[in-house]
Design a protein around this nucleic acid. Structure first.
Lengths: 190, 190
DNA sequence: ATATAAACAGACAGGTCTGTCTATTTGTCA
DNA sequence: TGACAAATAGACAGACCTGTCTGTTTATAT
């Protein structure tokens, strides 16, 4: 086990993701992690700071996972872009993050619970999405597309649509639907 | 003014939408609506029932608004489908629902806060999304598309992606980005 | 072994939450 | 005017919330 602090963030991330940020109480996190309350408040000033730490961990883990999946699929940038949707499908089916299941996107959820655009959690969510689209843009540029920025934004929008559809309607097949659309768009953008 | 009950639901919908379901307390709804607590519990068994009533109202208002916008745009079914994204843009800019602003999709938000698929609020959210896609499918069929079901699902996915992008990243222009993608897909589906 | 830091359990304060109750006022209709 | 229904204010219970505090135990490191 890593440090007490890491264990706390890990448990918090799991519960916040599965149950929501407001719906998850500090006491529950402490009970499930086996950490004392004073230890929490030694490492974090408040519950909000713990939420931010959990989101930062999620950003790191999610992007590392996604990039690894895409890069393992093929050396070709276009194939890598399309592989994103296969990775999403695995995620939707609960096969991506051990012990987490699929409860939508932690960042869409955060932006929804912390609606104010200037709330730190909402800003973290926006930053996460920007980082993902920047990675997609890099691949679009490697693929020699004429407008990598626009195509990356399109693919990112497809990703968000697939996530929301999979979560609300319980439709993991949204990933392949989005992949099919991505194929058409990539063909048109070549 | 309509009945006390309607006024209560209307205020609840506004606060739930702007601040979230868990984050909004009963007392706040009562204070802003000027209704007594016992009146609430005469009409609804619990806060959860009030949430469901608010979501039902939202479903009705949102679909009526969307269909009216699309049908006012043109008599042509394909044009109507494309007009959905112009309507979304107005919504994202806060010009659609008087006094509400834009805080994402009330149903995506609900599905996120009530993650359990069997929770009544989550089910209502899924039903809302299905009703929208059924309307899109009707238009796709009127347009004589070869696979109206698939195209309707694709357009619905674009809609969800635009909503999530507009909310998390504060990017109302996601609507036009999605419209451009819809054009390509509709051309390929003719 | 001993000093120092970290984590522990658990009580506590002060606030908020939902939901219930009583007693009073308002509104409506005949 | 008088009767009946609806809505009112406000107190209350019981649970939960975040965050603080005290005193004790456990690790670590020299």
């Amino acid at each position: 086990m890593a440090t007490r602090r890491d264990h706390l963030i890990d448990t918090a991330l799991r519960l916040f993701y599965q149950q929501g940020y407001h719906a998850t109480g500090i006491d529950r996190i402490l009970a499930e992690s086996g950490v004392a309350k004073m230890t929490l408040y030694k490492h974090f000033r408040s519950k909000d700071e713990l939420i931010l730490a959990a989101l930062q961990l999620r950003d790191e883990r999610f992007r590392n996972w996604l990039m690894a999946e895409m890069e393992a699929a093929s050396p070709d940038p276009v194939e890598r872009l399309l592989a994103m949707f296969d990775a999403l499908e695995q995620w939707f089916l609960g096969r991506a993050f051990k012990g987490l299941g699929f409860s939508g996107c932690a960042f869409i959820n955060a932006a929804s619970e912390f609606a104010d655009q200037s709330h730190p959690a909402h800003r973290l969510a926006a930053e996460h999405k920007v980082r993902v689209v920047e990675y997609l843009e890099k691949l679009c540029r490697e693929a020699g597309l004429t407008d990598p920025r626009t195509t990356a934004e399109q693919l990112a929008l497809l990703k968000e649509g697939a996530i929301a559809t999979a979560q609300v309607r319980n439709m993991p097949e949204a990933a392949q639907s989005a992949k099919q659309m991505a194929r058409v768009l990539l063909a048109a953008a070549a």
